[in-house]
Design a protein around this nucleic acid. Structure first.
Length: 112
DNA sequence: TACGTGACAGTCA
DNA sequence: ATGACTGCCACGT
């Protein structure tokens, strides 16, 4: 097929790939950056495809609360937490500690 | 072809 | 303040 939506997925992949090490972002932030404020679910779906498509660090993407909602979609339910901790992100009870501190917004990519 | 589900987020009661 | 429902778009069955 044309693969038009694939382009949309690719946009998400690019943003996720831009996430600096030790930082995380939310689906809504990516959706907002892409201009689809109500498309947070689509971002999540794109991550699902990204997980099996490219080297997209999906483990750096969490929901707006900082909860590792998609950890269950990784190879192992601990893969996401392990990856985050490996980057310096503290995770407790499937939630990112100091989420507001490690939170990285695509609009602020000029930072750090 | 149609219905339901889904890695979310926002608003209403 | 907490709980529940709806809205968005795409994919799977």
């Amino acid at each position: 097929m044309a693969g038009t939506k694939e382009n949309y997925f690719d946009l998400v992949y690019q943003v996720v790939r831009l996430i600096p090490r030790g930082r995380v972002t939310s689906y809504g932030a990516i959706a907002n950056y892409l201009g689809i404020k109500s498309g947070a679910r689509m971002v999540g779906y794109a991550m699902n495809a990204a997980h099996a498509h490219l080297d997209v660090p999906a483990h750096r993407v969490v929901n707006r609360v900082g909860v590792l909602t998609g950890k269950h979609h990784f190879a192992t339910p601990t893969q996401m937490q392990e990856s985050l901790e490996a980057e310096g992100v503290k995770v407790e009870n499937d939630r990112i500690l100091d989420f507001e501190k490690v939170f990285w917004d695509p609009n602020t990519l000029t930072l750090d």
